[in-house]
Amino acid sequence: MPRRIDPDTIGFLISDVARLLRAEFDRRTSDAGLGLSPGEARALSHVARAGSVRQSVLAERMGVEAMTLSTYVDKLEARGLVERTPDPSDRRAKLVGITDAAEPVLEDIIRISAALRSDMSGGLAPEKVDELREMLKQIRANLVEMKPECSRKSSAA
């Protein structure tokens, strides 16, 4: 008899919610007439969130291949929304940062994101949404701590 996998484990639920959230964000940004592909809108949002950051770091955070991100950044740079500058700690690397011209586009993305957050949390009390956010932040911190390149803190126990 085949094993039954519980479809409602926290990992599956987070994956499902992330996939559905991304698809809805993509649909809404496409429909908004921003002149950006959904991937470009996500890339611009991630650059704004991270500040001036290496492309390799940005690709990892977004969960995309470096070449995919490079294409997004090329298009955003051509529109004057981001700029690449030399990384002072490694001349071979480039940092990506937003420009002032990105602000109106980011305002549209922020508006779309806020409406999406409101719609997806419909029926939930605001304090429950805040509680969920705090729990997810703790789970994220726990997972970051598990990454091999992170130094493990010694337990006081």
Score class of each variant (00 low, 15 high):
Thr85Asn: 07
Leu132Gly: 03
Lys128Cys: 06
Ser151Ala: 15
Ala50Met: 10
Ala23Ser: 10
Glu127Asp: 12
Leu69His: 00
Ser56Met: 07
Lys75Asp: 10
Glu127Ser: 15
Val82Glu: 00
Pro2Asp: 09
Asp130Leu: 15
Pro126Lys: 01
Lys147Pro: 01
Leu143Lys: 08
Cys150Thr: 14
Arg84Gly: 09
Leu21Pro: 04
Arg152Ala: 09
Ala78Ile: 09
Ile10Asn: 13
Arg27Cys: 09
Val144Gly: 09
Gly51Asn: 05
Ile98Lys: 05
Met62Arg: 06
Ile14Asn: 02
Ser37Phe: 01
Glu127Gly: 11
Ala115His: 14
Ile112Lys: 00
Ile109Asp: 00
Gly122Ala: 14
Thr9Val: 09
Ala43Asp: 02
Leu116Thr: 06
Glu107Ala: 09
Gly123Met: 06
Val64Ile: 01
Val57Tyr: 02
Arg4His: 10
Ile110Gln: 11
Ser37Tyr: 01
Arg79Gly: 03
Gly33Trp: 04
Gly33Ile: 15
Gly80Ile: 00
Tyr72Leu: 00
Pro88Asn: 06
Glu24Val: 10
Ile14Asp: 02
Arg84Gln: 15
Met62Trp: 07
Met67Pro: 08
Ala48Met: 08
Gly122Tyr: 14
Ala59Asp: 02
Ser37Trp: 03
Pro2Ser: 04
Thr71Tyr: 10
Gln138Pro: 05
Leu34His: 03
Ala115Leu: 10
Glu83Lys: 15
Thr68Asn: 05
Gly123Phe: 03
Ser113Tyr: 06
Val105Arg: 04
Leu124Lys: 05
Ile110Leu: 13
Glu134Pro: 04
Ser113Asp: 04
Thr71Asp: 04
Leu58Trp: 01
Arg92Phe: 08
Glu24Lys: 01
Asp119Arg: 11
Arg133Lys: 12
Asp130Val: 08
Ser30Tyr: 14
Ser30Gln: 14
Arg19Ile: 14
Val144Phe: 11
Ala115Pro: 06
Gly80Met: 04
Ala114Ser: 12
Ser113Phe: 03
Arg152Pro: 08
Ala78Glu: 10
Ala41Thr: 03
Ser118Pro: 12
Gly80Ser: 03
Met67Ala: 11
Lys128Trp: 10
Arg117Ile: 08
Ala32Glu: 09
Asp16Tyr: 09
Arg61Ser: 02
Ala41Phe: 02
Leu106Glu: 00
Glu65Pro: 00
Val53Phe: 05
Ser118His: 15
Ser151Leu: 10
Ser15Ile: 06
Pro126Cys: 05
Arg49Met: 12
Thr85Cys: 05
Ser113Cys: 02
Arg54Ile: 04
Arg133Ser: 14
Asp16Thr: 14
Leu76Ser: 01
Glu149Phe: 13
Ala114Val: 07
Leu58Ile: 01
Glu107Ile: 12
Glu83Phe: 06
Gly97Asn: 01
Ile5Ala: 02
Arg84Val: 10
Ser155Ile: 11
Val105Asp: 04
Arg133Asp: 12
Ser45Asn: 05
His46Asp: 11
Met135Asn: 12
Thr71Asn: 05
Phe25Ala: 00
Ser52Ala: 13
Val129Ile: 04
His46Glu: 14
Thr85Met: 14
Arg117His: 11
